[in-house]
Amino acid sequence: MKKILLLFIAMLTAISIWFMITKNPASSSSTSIQAKLADVKDYKYYLDKGNDTIGEDMTKLDLVIVEPIEMQQKYIDNAQKNGTLVYGYINAMEADQWNTVLYRQLEEDDFYRDKQGEKMYFAQWDSYLMDMTSSHYQDILLTEIEKQIVQKGLDGVFLDTVGNINSYLPEDEQKWQNEAMLSFIQQIKQRHPTLSVAQNWGFQTLIDYTAPYVDFIMWEDFSYHEVGNDEWSLEMMKKLVHLREEFGTQVMAIGFTDELESRALAKKYNFKFFYSPAGSYYNTWQ
């Protein structure tokens, strides 16, 4: 009788696990995306329009990050048909004035202001630092993700400028912005459980807040002369390896100089690597 009872319990457990797997596509999809990201060998980061040559090249990559407003849908679709993961760029902590459709929706309370009440403007990019604690701003971004990422069938959203929180904000304000960023990413996953999420920089944000929800983080200027002998960088590499072991979060490294040495360092930590001699300008297909 006891054996029968144990067998019955085991059967119920197996049925329960099967039901959770088959009825929870978010879980299986997330696992599938993470498995594909772990196998990535060649990837590119490109934020301009495509052409037939670029479209053909995209089909040969494991992953490509594109600006979905610029990249034509036919090239996205064709790349995905050939197994390429396609992530769409969304500027999270900055508002670009060139994106007029989004920019016109902003209200004054959506902009970050320093203790003197001044906005923070980035002349290099013609953009303003935003306040992620603004629910109105989060709603604008969520709508943008729906329009530019979900409706276009991309595999994931790539959140740029997450690192602005730690790079530009006073320490006593970072906690609130980090918590807001976490809440924002959680909303993305709640609305779109199968959508993969990635972020650019924001290592401390990742470690303390967002790692459970982020499938890869980008490390720009992973150039040997910048990081190869830098104590902070070497320690961060080890921390990112631990996060990968715990959450499956991959690292997409981009080197600007010292291609061979930078690539070798990335390989040592099993980071994915892309060489960009033009630096952080990704408007040329390289």
Score class of each variant (00 low, 15 high):
Leu5Ser: 11
Met11Phe: 15
Leu12Ser: 12
Ala14Asn: 09
Phe19Gln: 09
Asn24Asp: 09
Ser30Arg: 14
Ser32Ala: 12
Ser32Gln: 11
Ile33Cys: 03
Ile33Val: 14
Leu37Gly: 10
Leu37Thr: 13
Asp42Trp: 00
Lys44Gln: 10
Tyr46Phe: 10
Thr53Val: 15
Glu56Tyr: 09
Met58Val: 05
Lys60Met: 01
Ile65Asn: 06
Val66Trp: 01
Glu67Gly: 03
Ile69Ala: 14
Glu70Tyr: 01
Ile76Asn: 03
Asp77Ala: 15
Asp77Thr: 15
Gly83Cys: 08
Thr84Glu: 06
Tyr89Ala: 05
Met93His: 01
Ala95Trp: 04
Gln105Phe: 07
Gln105Trp: 03
Asp109Met: 09
Lys115Phe: 01
Gln124Asp: 13
Tyr128Ala: 05
Ser134Gln: 06
His136Ala: 10
Lys147Ile: 06
Ile149Ser: 06
Ile149Pro: 00
Gly153Gln: 09
Leu154Asn: 04
Val157Ser: 04
Thr161Asp: 04
Ile165Ala: 11
Asn166Phe: 00
Asn166Asp: 10
Ser167Asn: 09
Ser167Ile: 08
Leu169Trp: 01
Gln174Thr: 12
Gln174Asn: 06
Lys175Gly: 13
Lys175Leu: 07
Gln177Asp: 02
Asn178Ala: 09
Ala180Glu: 03
Ala180Asn: 07
Ser183Asp: 13
Ile185Ala: 07
Gln187Thr: 13
Arg191Asn: 12
Leu195Glu: 02
Ser196Trp: 03
Asn200Thr: 11
Ile207Thr: 13
Ile207Lys: 10
Asp208Ala: 13
Val214Phe: 01
Ile217Tyr: 00
Glu220His: 04
Asp221Trp: 00
Ser223Asp: 04
Val227Ala: 05
Met236Leu: 11
Lys238Ala: 14
Lys238Asp: 14
Lys239Phe: 00
Lys239Val: 13
Leu240Gln: 12
Leu240Gly: 01
Leu243Tyr: 01
Arg244Gln: 13
Glu245Leu: 08
Glu246Val: 12
Thr249Ile: 07
Met252Gly: 02
Leu260Ala: 14
Leu260Glu: 12
Leu260Ile: 11
Ser262Pro: 00
Leu265Asn: 03
Phe271Val: 11
Lys272Ala: 09
Tyr275Asp: 05
Tyr275Leu: 00
Tyr275Cys: 04
Gly279Thr: 14
Gly279Trp: 03
Gly279Asn: 11
Thr284Val: 15
